Computed example of a mutant assay.
Amino acid sequence: MTVLSVKDLRKRYGHVDALVGASMSINAGEVVSLIGDNGAGKSTLVRILSGVEAADSGHFEFDGKALDAGDISKRRELGIETVFQDLALADDLNPVQNLFLGREVMRQGILGKLGFMDTKAMEKQGRHALQTLGATVRNFSGRVGGMSGGQKQSIAVCRAATWANKLIFLDEPTAALGVPQTKGVMDLIRRVRDSGVAVILISHSMPHVLEISDRIVVLRRGRTVANYTPANTSVEELVGAMTGALEVGEKK
């Protein structure tokens, strides 16, 4: 089932054309990697699809219905979450508190109306979510600011997976991570995919892209130029498509 379909998205900043015809689609339970050289339009496309910005023109559908422009809160209501490169974690809070940040569970009755949170319920649900998704977190009560990059990344992905039931955007989730931390995040992406949630991944690591993806979409100068499956391509071909060294059409 197609979760998201994008056709001919265009976006211009002043005299710069960031997107000049980006198109792609993704199905439920699928990982689609979005690759391209710096300035290809990857992050712009994700900002538009996640509701941070509005496109100048183009058409995109979510679950077969037209998706309104530029409203990240409405995307969340539809089951769409995004993990940006800055992760947007609160360093002074623990992992469970970060999972429920902005979605706190309130106590029943008058106490809830007075602003009292149900910390026990959040602790139970949060621990279960982190453990079920295999997050590399051992200290559930410690400050996130004192944790490793891999642990922070897994918390951010888990938070997205906890609230998303349709689609997650991941912008460079393994950037600057070591080998063990990267493996943990990759395993986490697989668990999210296997739960039926669609994942759109931005990454500069071609080996990781080939390892984790069901399909690979190549952007160059704001335009979709190729669509590959990992079994039928190579790092050299992907780099050639990204840089323009190879003239390519759509390949499946």
Rank of each mutant, 00 (worst) to 15 (best):
M1W: 01
R10T: 11
R12S: 13
H15R: 15
H15M: 08
H15E: 08
D17P: 04
D17Y: 09
D17M: 14
A18P: 10
G21K: 05
S23W: 06
S23F: 03
G29R: 02
E30N: 09
L34V: 12
D37Q: 11
N38C: 05
K42G: 10
T44R: 06
I48Y: 05
L49T: 04
G51D: 01
E53W: 11
A55L: 01
A55N: 02
G58C: 06
G58Q: 05
F60I: 01
F60Q: 01
D71L: 06
I72N: 12
K74L: 12
L78Y: 12
L78H: 12
L78P: 08
G79P: 08
T82F: 01
V83L: 08
V83Q: 01
A90Y: 04
A90F: 02
A90G: 13
D92A: 13
L99I: 14
L101S: 10
R103D: 09
R107Q: 14
I110L: 15
M117A: 15
K120A: 15
A121L: 14
L130A: 12
L130H: 08
L133A: 08
F140Q: 07
R143H: 04
R143W: 02
G146W: 00
M147K: 09
K152T: 07
I155G: 13
A156K: 00
T162Q: 15
K166S: 11
D171V: 05
A175Q: 12
A175G: 07
A176T: 15
V179T: 13
K183A: 13
V185F: 10
M186R: 07
D194K: 07
G196T: 02
V197A: 04
I202P: 11
I202M: 09
H204C: 09
S205T: 07
S205C: 00
M206Q: 03
V209I: 13
I212G: 05
R215I: 11
R223I: 00
V225S: 12
Y228M: 05
V239E: 02
G244V: 07
L246N: 06
E250M: 14
